[in-house]
Amino acid sequence: MTIEFVKDVSLCVPSEPQYLRVIRQIAMVVGAKADLPLDCLDEGQLASDEAANILMKFAEPNAALYFDWGSQPGALHLRARTRCLLPELPDLPKTLEYAWVIISAITSHLDIFLAEDQVHIHLTVQSDI
């Protein structure tokens, strides 16, 4: 699936949970720009939060997390990545368990892949309206 991605906000943070607040806040502002309904706005934040948690799980020590959010009417896009030491991705539903169920349920597009020693997450949260 090809998504037209126009970047609104970029962020680079250490791979530490205390930065999740910042990530959620930016997701809210970009989601508001996309004029998402409030429940989708919640889910955009939740998806960004889960994506960050997944990256932290796979990140190599002292790696930074990189986020690019984009928006279009009714849709919030996130492209996130971090350096990792994995030769290949593990079985995601089994490895991520709860996080996988949440993130795959609330996103209309989700892609997690390895490229050039980095794990990437591309996702979209979309309003039905």
Binding site: G31, A32, D35, L36, P37, L38, D39, C40, L41, S127, I129
Partner: peptide, 9 residues
């Protein structure tokens, strides 16, 4: 019967 969008709110 639906949630408002950000601009509607």
């Amino acid at each position: 019967s639906v949630q408002p969008s950000f601009s509607e709110l």
